[in-house]
Each structure stands twice: as structure tokens, then as C-alpha cells.
């Protein structure tokens, strides 16, 4: 894959996926920074990795399974004490249109 030059459009597209507001002069700033970081990263493109299995975790153990038991109790009051906005036990957000 050829080196990536991060364009304004790419910054905006990635910002949308990341749910971040990036605007004005910041767009170019991010474009320059991302291009530099990706140039560093792209050094790996020269490495021959054919036939190498990706390694997503350093542990080669198998996932242990948990017994199907209810171990949690209602802690809504504690959890919602630090919530930005709640009502009647619900977390509130601006109206969502489906």
C-alpha cells in the first residue's frame, strides 16, 4: 500500500467515525500530524508477513467460562449519583430520532 497523505476530507471522515469535532485550522493540523504518524507506521509495510498469523493478545491461554449465576445486585443509585442527567432511573440524552 502506498504511503497515505492525509487529506482534509479524510480527517473529517475519520473525525465523524470517532465522533469528534475537528474544524477550522485544526483540520490541517490533524492532517499534518496524522500524515507524520502514518509515515512512521508505514515503515512496517516493507516487512514480509506472508503466512504470519496476526497476534491479537500476548496470552496464548484459552478463555475461561463463568458459571451462569446472578452475582450483581442493583446499584443504580450509586452509579447514577455520578451521571450527568437522569430521571426516574433513566439516563437522559437529547431526543433520538430512529
Amino acid at each position: 500500500m502506498p504511503p497515505i497523505t492525509v487529506t482534509q476530507d479524510l480527517v473529517l471522515a475519520v473525525a465523524e467515525l470517532s465522533q469528534l469535532n475537528i474544524d477550522g485550522a485544526d483540520i490541517d493540523d490533524y492532517a499534518v500530524d496524522m500524515t507524520k504518524v502514518l509515515a512512521l507506521v508505514e515503515q512496517m509495510h516493507g516487512v514480509d508477513t506472508s503466512g504470519i498469523a496476526p497476534m491479537s493478545n500476548p496470552t496464548d491461554a484459552s478463555q475461561q467460562l463463568r458459571a451462569d449465576e446472578v452475582t450483581e445486585t442493583d446499584q443504580r443509585e450509586r452509579f447514577q449519583a455520578i451521571a450527568p442527567e437522569t430521571d426516574g432511573g433513566f439516563y437522559l440524552v437529547p431526543r433520538v430520532v430512529e
Binding site: M1, V41, M44, V47
Partner: peptide, 22 residues
């Protein structure tokens, strides 16, 4: 931003998967 890019469609193989192979 960099991480979102590396996982996004069209770049996942060349970035994320490649990195996990390395």
C-alpha cells in the same frame, strides 16, 4: 483518530492486521 483510521474499511488489512502480524 489514527486508531480509527487504522481499523477503517480499506485500511484494516494494511495497517491493523499488518501490525498484528509484525
Amino acid at each position: 483518530m489514527v486508531g480509527t483510521f487504522a481499523l477503517s474499511a480499506g485500511y484494516y488489512e494494511a495497517y491493523y492486521r499488518k501490525a498484528q502480524q509484525i
